[in-house]
Amino acid sequence: MYLFTGKIVSNRQLTRDIRYLRITAPAEFCRQAAPGRFVMLGCDDGLFDPLLKRPFGIMNRGDDWFEVLIKEVGRGTLQLGELAEGSCVSGHGPLGNGYPEVDSELRSKDSSPLILVAGGMGIASIASCLLFNNRRPLNPDCKTILLYGAARLDELLLLDEIEKNSADLRIETITDDGSSGRRGWVTELLENELRQHPASLTFACGPEPMLKNVQQVLCKFKTRGYLSLENRMACGFGVCLGCVQKMAATGDNGAGESAKVCTQGPVFPADKVVF
C-alpha cells in the first residue's frame, strides 16, 4: 500500500449529495487496486479538522488514476466532495482484501451466474467488479446479474457507465419509493434469482440492514456469497481496532471471534459475519 498525494482530475455532481471523483495516483497504487479494495482519503491541509482520513471503495482505475463515489453525510465527506479540479488529496491504499477471484470460485459451477447485489452507495464497491478492466468479461461461461436497489430513481447511479463497460450483464433495479418502476428491497430481487439459479455466487455491498437480509436469503437457499462491510474506521490498516466485527466461531471453544474489517475484510464469506 502507498501513501500519496493525488490531484482531483474531475469532480462530477451526480445528485444533490453524491459526487463522482477521479483522482491521480501512483501507477503502483493503480496496479494493486482490485475489486472491493478501498482507499483512505483526506484533505491533509494541516488543520486537523476533519482529523482522520475516510474510507471509500475504489470503483474504477486506470494507469495513473482511480475513481470514487462520495455521498456527503458529514464533515469529512462534505469537505472531500467540495474539492475542485486540481486540488490535492492525501491518499492511503489500496487497503483491504477485495472480492475473491470469480473464475476460481465459479469454475465448478458451470453456468450458474454471478449475482452482484448493491444497495445505495454499495454500488461503488460492487461496480468495481464490473468496471475494472481485468475482470471483463467476468467469466465467459457465466452470466453476471446486477441487482441494484436505492432510495429513489435519481439515486440509481451510473447505470449507463456500468452497462457500457460490462460484457454479458443483466441489470435489475428497485427503489424504496417505486420511482424506478419496481418498489421494494433489493433482497426480493435476490430471492427471485436464487429460486432460478440456486448454485449462484453472490457478492453484496450496502447498508448493514440490507447485508443482514442478504445473509438470511443466502442462508435460506444454502448458497455461497460474500458481504462487503463498511464499519467505522480510524486507521484503515489494522492498528486501532475501531472497525472490529464479530465473526462466527471457527475454533471448537464455541467463543465468537472477531475480525478487523480493514485488513481481514472488508469482504467476508457471508456465513462468517455475526450481525
Binding site: 482529523l51 482522520l52 469529512g76 486501532c240 481496532l241 475501531g242 472497525c243 472490529v244 464479530k246
Partner: peptide
C-alpha cells in the same frame, strides 16, 4: 481480551473518541 461492542470510534473537532475496550 475482546473489546467493547457497538461503534468504537467517532471523530470530534480536531480529535477522536475511542472506546475500544483494551482488546
Amino acid at each position: 481480551k475482546t473489546g467493547n461492542p457497538g461503534t468504537r470510534i467517532t471523530e470530534t473537532a480536531c480529535g477522536m473518541l475511542n472506546a475500544i475496550g483494551l482488546e
